[in-house]
């Protein structure tokens, strides 16, 4: 079993709102930085469409109107927990798993933890990625977390 990528961020709102804003992904997803369109068509995607319920899909519409299916909700427990088969950029048969939990810390603070796992779903290249040379997942995470909290 390979170690998952784990990211945590504390946000200044109640659990319910943290969940709702997360599901309103089209409002905040950084399409200018992170989209298939950016990678393949050279410009930010036009939009992201989120069908936020069990079995719903996340679909990107690229700058050239090509649609990219990123993933499908495999668990949908409102306000608490989300799970996605995630295969952005790959055929749907090669999926990793993205798991997001929302834990209330106080009435107005929620901890959001995102775990990207099931690297086996990406088949053998996953192990090479995880066990390859250089890079330091832990360090990158700590830096990112610190900057997210400092904002």
């Amino acid at each position: 079993m390979l170690d998952p990528v784990v990211k945590t961020v504390d946000v200044p709102c109640a659990q319910k709102q943290a969940f709702e804003i997360f599901c309103d992904m089209s409002a905040w997803w950084p399409l200018d930085k992170r989209s298939m369109s950016k990678m393949q068509a050279g410009g930010p995607a036009k939009r992201l469409t989120i069908d936020a319920h069990l079995g719903g899909r996340i679909v990107e519409t690229a700058i050239d109107d090509v649609e990219h299916h990123w993933g499908t909700f495999t668990k949908f427990d409102p306000n608490h927990h989300l799970q996605l088969d995630f295969h952005m950029g790959l055929p749907a048969t090669k999926s990793g798993q993205v798991d997001v939990t929302f834990t209330p810390l106080t009435a107005t603070t929620t901890r959001v933890e995102l775990i990207h796992s099931n690297w086996e779903g990406y088949e053998d290249m996953a192990e090479m990625m995880r066990n390859g040379y250089g890079g330091n997942w832990g360090l990158l995470f700590e830096e990112a977390y610190a900057s997210a909290c400092a904002g």
């Binding site: 990528v5 990211k7 961020v9 946000v11 200044p12 709102c13 709102q17 943290a18 804003i21 997360f22 309103d24 409002a27 905040w28 997803w29 950084p30 930085k33 992170r34 959001v112 995102l114 990207h116 990625m129 890079g135 997942w137 990158l140 995470f141 990112a144 900057s147 997210a148 904002g151």
Partner: peptide, 18 residues
């Protein structure tokens, strides 16, 4: 790439919450 991918995504999310 994969690490930074989620860092960027969650950062944008936190900005939207704020």
């Amino acid at each position: 790439y994969l690490d930074q991918f989620w860092t960027d995504a969650l950062e944008s999310y936190a900005v939207e919450v704020r």
